[in-house]
Amino acid sequence: MHIKILGSGCQKCLALADNARAAAKAAGIDVEIEKVTDVVAIAGYGVMSTPGLVIDEKVVSSGRVLTAAEVEALLTRV
């Protein structure tokens, strides 16, 4: 699976990336995590508040640091 973290390198984006990594590990899913820091690219996903979480090119959350459990639920649902 391909996960993108949208955000211009703020603390919250790092926290979200960590949680996503932990979630993938817990769910036993092989993921590739990419950070998108360019504001225009971020806005290209229609996201106005960062951090945003994109799973397989689909925006699943924005403006909030999801907990590892929340990310895990999203990962296993897809």
């Binding site: 211009s8 504001v39 225009v40 971020i42 806005a43 290209g44 229609g46 996201v47 106005m48 508040s49 960062t50």
Partner: peptide, 13 residues
């Protein structure tokens, strides 16, 4: 001003 671009695009689109 750093968040004005995402808002501009988000509002306009």
């Amino acid at each position: 001003s750093c968040s004005s671009i995402p808002l501009f695009i988000g509002f306009t689109s």
